[in-house]
Amino acid sequence: MERGTVYLIGAGPGDAELITLRGSRILRQADWILYASSLVSEELFEEVKPEARLLSSAEMHLDEIVTAMVEQARKGRVVARVHSGDPSIYGAILEQVVRLRREGIPFEIIPGVSAAFAAAARIGSELTVPEISQTVVFTRTGGRASPLPPGGELRKWARDSATLALFLSAALVDRVVAELREAGMAEDTPVVIAEKVTWPEEQVIHTTLAELSREMRAAKITRQAMILVGRALDPSLLESGEHRSRLYDPGHTHLFRKRVKSP
């Protein structure tokens, strides 16, 4: 860890124990911590230095955030900029990194656990199941803050063979359903809604495309929800055991394991 450096840290989905060891160590030694207070658990900061300065970025715009980080780094302080989930997924870090580079401020990005993986772990499922899905698409519906590029509409990714992880789309669930239907996705396609996954108040709902909008309204979920869509999420797969990979098959060989001969 270097003084005068800005560390952009992924705090994970919510549970303070899901931050990486490196991220946690930097927080404990940081002099100045800027974090998204509405998305990051306060428990993360229980072991920071008594003299550390904590500041919420909830009401700050980009210029204020970057100016503050640059000022503190130039004073030789260890600066922690804390994001929810993993900073590389809808973390809006590129605009911060560009400005830090221009100012000559060293920085490091510390990865974190994405809500997509936390949701899959919570339901005890795998996002990539042999013969069902070998593709995972991280995407979202279009919004005012981050417009989609041409051709990036959700319907483009709505393939039966892919598992979709929809970020930042809870408030636009009717649009999600309409686009998936337009792409030809079946009404019985399994869906998992994970609101504030790993937080004490989390809600996890198993449903289908046909019932997605109704379930979201019934649960009053409008934000901070991960929506997973795809055949790999079918609860029956946890019972059937039919779709096995060849990785651990006795007849499959690789560099570290020889073929097991049949008796």
Rank of each mutant, 00 (worst) to 15 (best):
S38F: 05
S38L: 02
L39R: 00
L39D: 10
L39C: 03
L39T: 01
L39P: 05
L39Y: 01
V40M: 05
V40G: 07
S41E: 10
S41I: 04
S41K: 02
S41T: 03
S41P: 11
E42D: 15
E42S: 13
E42F: 00
E42C: 04
E42H: 13
E43V: 01
E43G: 01
L44R: 03
L44H: 10
F45M: 11
F45R: 14
F45N: 13
E46A: 14
E46V: 14
E47S: 14
E47D: 13
E47R: 13
E47V: 04
V48C: 05
V48G: 03
V48P: 06
V48T: 15
V48D: 03
V48S: 08
V48W: 08
V48M: 11
V48Q: 06
K49C: 11
K49P: 12
P50W: 08
P50A: 09
P50Y: 11
P50M: 07
P50T: 07
P50K: 06
E51G: 01
E51Y: 09
A52S: 10
A52P: 12
A52L: 05
A52F: 01
R53Y: 01
R53K: 10
R53N: 04
R53P: 05
L54C: 02
L54A: 00
L54R: 08
L54S: 05
L55Q: 13
L55R: 02
L55K: 10
L55C: 12
S56T: 04
S56I: 00
S57N: 00
S57R: 00
S57A: 14
S57V: 00
S57H: 03
S57G: 07
A58F: 03
A58P: 02
A58Y: 00
A58W: 06
A58L: 01
A58R: 04
E59H: 10
E59L: 04
E59R: 03
M60P: 01
M60F: 14
M60E: 11
M60L: 13
M60I: 06
M60S: 11
H61L: 07
L62C: 00
L62G: 02
L62D: 09
D63N: 12
D63A: 14
D63E: 15
D63M: 07
E64K: 12
E64W: 03
E64C: 02
E64N: 03
E64F: 11
E64I: 02
E64M: 04
I65W: 03
I65P: 12
I65E: 13
V66M: 12
V66C: 14
V66R: 13
V66E: 13
V66S: 12
V66G: 13
V66T: 15
T67P: 12
T67D: 15
T67S: 15
T67G: 15
T67K: 15
T67E: 15
T67V: 02
A68D: 15
A68C: 10
A68M: 08
A68V: 06
M69A: 14
M69R: 08
M69S: 10
M69V: 08
V70S: 06
V70N: 07
V70M: 00
V70A: 07
V70G: 10
V70P: 03
V70H: 06
E71W: 01
E71G: 02
E71H: 07
E71T: 08
Q72D: 01
Q72E: 15
Q72S: 11
Q72L: 05
